[in-house]
Design a protein around this nucleic acid. Structure first.
Lengths: 126, 126
DNA sequence: CTCATATTCAACCGTTCGGTTGACGATGCC
DNA sequence: GGCATCGTCAACCGAACGGTTGAATATGAG
């Protein structure tokens, strides 16, 4: 039976952070990028048309949400996907799933298209 | 093969709306309530310590996100859970799932506890 | 018709969000 | 040491958020 330590944030709060982090297309695009490989902050920022500082903030938000972790090695900070938080949110959503235990199918190709398209489309959005 | 009609909002935008809608604990609590049964706006509002207008706004946001639908019958407007949007978001998240195809297990009771606790805890939060 | 109920609208308010810019602290390279 | 690079900090900005209140708009009931 899962039980919170006294000062650990409530699950409810964690879901706030997770969903709020996922609610931004730039951040979702970043997650997609990290799906392929760990990346340095500068490299994460490169494809976007916004300042490095802005990306740095996004990464902070993703870290706070537990969706990624950041580890400084030398002068570069590496960003790594952390699937745990997303899984927790996913499980929460399953609670609403009258929909069957998530078998992709036709949806699968749909998904892949989106994952591919998301990062690229930022370019054309201003 | 899923294919957008010309003016239909992009999937990316839909995910924005869905995750943003899910990022608020009041709205998640509302969804939990609707899991048990369809409800009128006034009845949805009853357990919360905020104005009816505020709840009405939350319901609008949930509707825009496609997470619920609202149907007016007589003078009351009935709110109904719509699992489609949540499923879409869930599927999107599965794309990040190195984690296995979501079999609940020990997690299941965890979840139920949370679903139960969420609505009630609002009372004590001010 | 009159009154009560159900719900939204409109204006307002303080806070948070997503972005910018410029300065700054660390770190690696020559 | 001196310089470039990596990344964050701080202050600022406009827009969106989450809430309030009071008035307005259906609709149903007597």
């Amino acid at each position: 039976m899962p039980q919170r330590a006294p000062n650990e944030p409530r699950m409810d709060d964690k879901l706030d952070l997770t969903f709020q982090a996922l609610a931004d297309p730039t951040r979702r695009a970043i997650l997609s990028m990290l799906l392929e490989d760990d990346m340095a902050v500068t490299d994460v920022a490169e494809p976007f048309e916004m300042s490095l500082a802005a990306i740095s903030k996004h990464l902070t938000i993703l870290t706070r949400a537990g969706l990624i972790s950041q580890e400084k090695r030398g002068r570069v900070k590496w960003c790594k996907l952390e699937p745990g938080a997303m899984k927790a949110a996913s499980v929460w959503m399953q609670g609403f799933g009258q929909f069957e235990p998530v078998n992709l199918d036709a949806f699968e190709t749909y998904l892949e298209t989106l994952l591919g398209a998301e990062g690229e489309e930022r370019e054309t959005q201003g």
